[in-house]
C-alpha cells in the first residue's frame, strides 16, 4: 500500500530527481538510481523502468548530454552530464516543486 502511494507521488518527479543528482557530476544510469535512493534515505526509488525513458527524453530535449566511456570494469558505460539548458530546467522544476510541496503541506496540515 505504501509502495503504491509512493509510486503515485513519484510520478512526475523523476525529472527533478534525475537533474538534481546530475548537478553534482556525471553518472551512469544505475548510479543515478542508486544516488537517488541514497540521497532520499531509501524513501525514493524511481522505478527503473521509468528512469531510462526519462534520461533519454531529457537528452532529446537537450537537458542532458550522454557519452560512452570506459568503466572500471566490464563494458563501456553511458554517462550523463547536465547541460546549461538542464540547469535552467532544474531551477524551474525546483521552484515549482517548492511551491507545490508547501501548498500541499499547508493543505494536508490544515494551516
Amino acid at each position: 500500500m505504501h509502495g503504491r502511494i509512493r509510486a503515485q507521488l513519484l510520478k512526475g518527479t523523476t525529472t527533478l530527481l534525475v537533474l538534481t543528482v546530475l548537478r553534482d557530476g556525471e553518472l551512469y544510469g544505475y548510479e543515478i538510481a542508486q544516488r537517488i535512493r541514497g540521497r532520499s534515505g531509501g524513501a525514493f526509488a524511481p522505478g527503473e523502468g521509468s528512469l531510462y525513458p526519462a534520461l533519454h527524453a531529457l537528452e532529446a530535449d537537450g537537458a542532458l548530454e550522454a557519452s560512452w566511456r570506459d568503466s572500471d570494469r566490464g563494458p563501456r558505460r553511458r554517462y550523463y552530464k547536465i547541460t546549461k539548458s538542464g540547469l535552467a530546467m532544474l531551477a524551474e522544476h525546483s521552484h515549482e516543486w517548492a511551491a507545490f510541496s508547501q501548498g500541499m503541506a499547508r493543505a494536508v496540515e490544515g494551516n
Binding site: G47, E48, G49, S50, Y52, P53, A54, L55, H56, A57, A60, D61
Partner: peptide, 22 residues
C-alpha cells in the same frame, strides 16, 4: 522485474527518443 514489462519499456523509450523536434 524492476525494469517492468519489456514491451512497455520499449514503447516508453521510443516515445522518449522520437520527440516532435526530431
Amino acid at each position: 522485474g524492476r525494469l517492468g514489462p519489456p514491451r512497455e519499456l520499449g514503447r516508453q523509450l521510443r516515445i522518449a527518443h522520437q520527440s516532435t523536434r526530431r
